[in-house]
Nucleic acid binder design. Structure first.
Lengths: 351, 351
DNA sequence: CTACATATGCTCCAATAGAGCATATGTAGG
DNA sequence: CCTACATATGCTCTATTGGAGCATATGTAG
């Protein structure tokens, strides 16, 4: 890459900061962290693989598998990620895709006025939890423990009305006097859209937007840690999900949002399934990810109609009722038109 | 970010390479390049903003606006990008979104065995070309000059059958003897799916996949430059679009694919339009991006029905026919349900 | 053998979207 | 002024999709 333009960067002469346990003299070089949100579904519960920093201490923060990108060793970013995951969990990653690259200042437990010098690249990996792919370290934890307001499987989570809604509305009001920032959407509207308040529809894909909103409002523990919540009056700040180290919860939010979106238009559910499964098990897995219950007959029709699966010829008998046919993923769909996902149209939203 | 794991990186002691016109002693630090694919539509032609490296020299390679991320100056990645764009083109960027982070070795005109030490983050920006947002440098160039095989506005580009298809089939055959690489899709299938051969449907969103396939097959000038095409027998290699510096063409491919995908489910077309426009102008803009012609009446019905636009009350008379009503974007849709794009269902592909 | 639970097939219907016809209202040229 | 023409715009007809529910099949448990 030609960098003849570097000179315009006007690098400041101030001393560099110690990052990644090393000294860094070049103002244009940064460390890159590779972070993996490894998702599976275990007993109808969507889970993510956690590597506890210190499993014994009580106040230990949850951590995703991660490590620095080392251009000497890693030929590609994804290769580096796989190496770190292998190293830290023993897991041999299957499906993986890049999510996003974050570099905001002060999102890493450092003083906010410090240059980050570190950039986080988040990855989403999907795997089958029940099968042993070499996993030796790490624990599976429900992703709803980190995002309780995302769990709509039973019904609307009470935490929204009880804790989130009133505090966000307060936060939105405090900004009204600042005059309407033309161009950007007003706080109150963002709150309404993100959390589906006042008649707005809940969009299960907006996981990151919701997290960022809560962070911005200082309602997230990480925001306090990062010095974003200027010691507000709400010392009664509620516990909104388990915190994570660094910006890992933000990465996980991105991963959940992407999983929910992608499952609808690409056949990625099957990364979460065993080689053979019943259609009901498949449906339960989708529902674990997306939340709302689906119409069973229509789900079957859609999945079969799209040619996503083929019967193995065998049945699973211990279902408590009529035996269910076993299916397997029809890999040939990948060779056909824009291979679809399990399309689930939104509920008949009257709008 | 906690980097207690850095020690496992087993940094090799070999001398570091000179990258980005500077020395870099730390094996874990890399330079980050911010690259902008700035897209507009000018006279029904989708264009991208190019900053010629050397406008006068004949063999000059096209370059996207780009510059290194400087954590001292740039609070965020996107902020850094905007600063570089402003600096190099005078343009004040409006809509921008991150695309992808690339770090493959040897994609930067360097020897392939050299560590990259530089990571490229690509961004997509949409703007209105006809309006002056401060643009002082750079030229608009049709994106189809870089990707002639993507131009389906008239009909199927001849370059596919004439140049691409035979060479890719040859390339696919050469790999058959290697035994079928289990797990990955066979070359022949990839070729078929990517380019819609042998009855497969053309997916206008697979821009990056197609480019990568051509690169892999050594049919792209950048692949030769990067030393990927081992001086094959085809010294008769055809000119498949204009080359670009570094990995900029790959970034542009990502940008085109994303634009085509996003225009269908988010109201981003309007970033490309003037404040007021006729529905026909809007349709022409969408067609410039997506290619196939749309049914005029249905397009109107969909756009109006989705509440994306509102009439200004005025008409544009110099249309050569009945005057067209002028419309403007109804920004309120952003406050409604998952604000839709201009849904255009695929042609009645019999499948 | 019966009650029950789940699987599975099929029908009905509302909403969506593709396609085309008909009409409105300008410009251009005699 | 009048006519040919071009584009805009409204409306209808119809095929397809997807939401919802009924009916039947085939197991297990007591």
């Amino acid at each position: 890459m030609n960098m003849e333009l570097s000179g315009r960067g006007k690098p400041s002469p101030e001393k560099s900061h110690r990052v990644m346990a090393r000294d860094n003299a070049d103002p244009l070089s940064v460390g890159i962290g590779l972070n993996a949100a490894i998702v599976a579904v275990l007993d109808n519960e969507p889970v993510v693989l956690i590597v506890r920093k210190d499993p014994d201490s009580a106040g230990a923060t949850d951590v995703l598998p991660f490590g620095p990108f080392n251009p000497r060793e890693h030929r590609t970013l994804e290769g580096g990620l796989r190496a770190w995951v292998q190293d830290q969990t023993g897991l041999d990653l299957g499906y993986a895709e890049q999510l996003y690259t974050f570099a905001d200042r002060g999102r890493h437990s450092e003083p906010a006025d410090t240059s980050p010098h570190v950039v986080s690249i988040g990855y989403l990996a999907l795997t089958e939890a029940s099968r042993d792919h070499g996993l030796t370290h790490g624990i599976w934890r429900s992703w709803y423990q980190f995002f309780p307001w995302e769990d709509w499987r039973r019904s609307r989570p009470e935490i929204i009305s009880a804790e989130i809604e009133p505090r966000l509305k307060l936060w939105a009001e405090r900004a009204v006097t600042n005059g309407s920032q033309s161009g950007s959407i007003a706080r109150a509207d963002r709150v309404r859209i993100c959390f589906g308040l006042d008649g707005a529809a809940w969009d299960e894909e907006k996981v990151l937007e919701r997290y960022e909103l809560l962070y911005e409002a200082g309602l997230i523990e990480e925001a306090v840690r990062d010095g974003r919540s200027a010691a507000q009056s709400w010392t009664d700040r509620p516990k909104l999900g388990l915190p994570m180290q660094s910006d890992h919860r933000r990465i996980l939010a991105t991963a959940i949002g992407r999983t929910r979106a992608k499952i609808k238009y690409r056949p990625v559910v099957f990364e979460l399934m065993p080689p053979e499964f019943t259609l009901y098990e498949l449906q339960k897995t989708v529902e674990a990810i997306l939340g709302p219950h689906l119409h069973k007959q229509n789900f079957r029709r859609l999945v079969e109609g799209a040619g996503l699966v083929e019967a193995t010829g065998e049945v699973k008998t211990r279902t408590g009722g009529r035996p269910a046919k076993l299916f397997r993923f029809r890999k040939e769909v990948l060779l056909e038109r824009p291979a679809p996902g399990v399309r689930v149209s939104a509920p008949p939203s009257r709008n």
